[in-house]
Design a protein around this nucleic acid. Sequence first.
DNA 1: CGGCACCCCTGACACTTGTCACGGTCGGGT
DNA 2: ACCCGACCGTGACAAGTGTCAGGGGTGCCG
Lengths: 201, 201
Amino acid sequence: MIRVLLADDQAMVRGALATVLGLEADIEVVGQVGNGDEVVAAAKETAPDVALLDVQMPGMDGLTAAAELKTALPACRVIICTTFGRPGYLARAMAAGAAGFVVKDAPPEQLVEAVRRVHSGLRVVDPALAAESLATGTSPLTARERDVLSAAKDGSTVADIAKSLFLSDGTVRNHLSSAIGKTGARTRAEAVRLSEERGWL
Amino acid sequence: MIRVLLADDQAMVRGALATVLGLEADIEVVGQVGNGDEVVAAAKETAPDVALLDVQMPGMDGLTAAAELKTALPACRVIICTTFGRPGYLARAMAAGAAGFVVKDAPPEQLVEAVRRVHSGLRVVDPALAAESLATGTSPLTARERDVLSAAKDGSTVADIAKSLFLSDGTVRNHLSSAIGKTGARTRAEAVRLSEERGWL
DNA sequence: CGGCACCCCTGACACTTGTCACGGTCGGGT
DNA sequence: ACCCGACCGTGACAAGTGTCAGGGGTGCCG
């Protein structure tokens, strides 16, 4: 029996996936959480063979949760299961030690397939997504540019960002300008959009 | 037997929900589509009692698909099933003739409950969401303000928006200014964000 | 008919933004 | 020691943006 831990913020899809996986003869869902912060605790309690993590969750990010889980329970293998096939997500998932990456556009059979393959020691990655990830490359943004860009995400002004990051107005403008240049955008809003699409946020 | 048609762009959750519903003794999933444009055609072919529609889909919007479905097959009852509990979505769903509104944060049992209730002629609405919908009120934006705002969504400049809508620069600025005032925002980007959160897009 | 709301445009103004040039600090690598 | 990149700041300038005061047009409704 493959012991599986499910983490997804939407209770409906979490429950549905749990019943789908539970119908398989060799798979057993031993735990479900809807919050990134609860992942490690639940894993310690249930000792799963495979953890299925969504990227966007309340509390801790699914990718950082994967990293923490990897250090806490090295034997537990991780599959990242997300709605968006952002190239940067895949890169970060692999860096965090994930063994599989599945997008929710794929049919459910592919998920149980991935669970089995990962449990037997293989890696599972969507080939088209892997190609796109290589093409897009890794994020060219510096840490500060990421900070400034994600602070600008909600439509804040330069002054707001400067205050929230304890920086000067001019510095914020410089980081924004640099980020705009690197993303190939013409506006700060466009830079935010492009960076999010590529998973550079 | 209650005949159900499923429409959701994510194949994985669509398939998972289908198996969950199929496990119920009195429910039968007679069709699945992943595109808003295919909803009406599939409904004509399968003659479902209940149609379960997601809001965001490629092609036609789930809400407008509900309206078209309502005119094509008046006997078919519609449930809107969405990730986001935007207040405006509920209002528009009801205006489109939907009989139920379920958010994906709810547990799966609530979905099969909703299918049964709606099939028996009742309406199903999340009470907390209904209250919020009334509190937020209906959209104060004019048609043109909506156009301009959604054209600004991707980070375009005023000149870009003006060109794409065949308007003058000044006119675009006026509409944006008015929309900013109505949403209580301080920036165009913030106005876009707030309008989306409230389902005014 | 006279309001009224919405649409479209103009022009002008203050402010914010994006860009550039410049100087300075700190850590890592050859 | 040297260079290089990332970081922080200043100052200044052109472009873009948000706001205001106008004027004209349409269609709807009391």
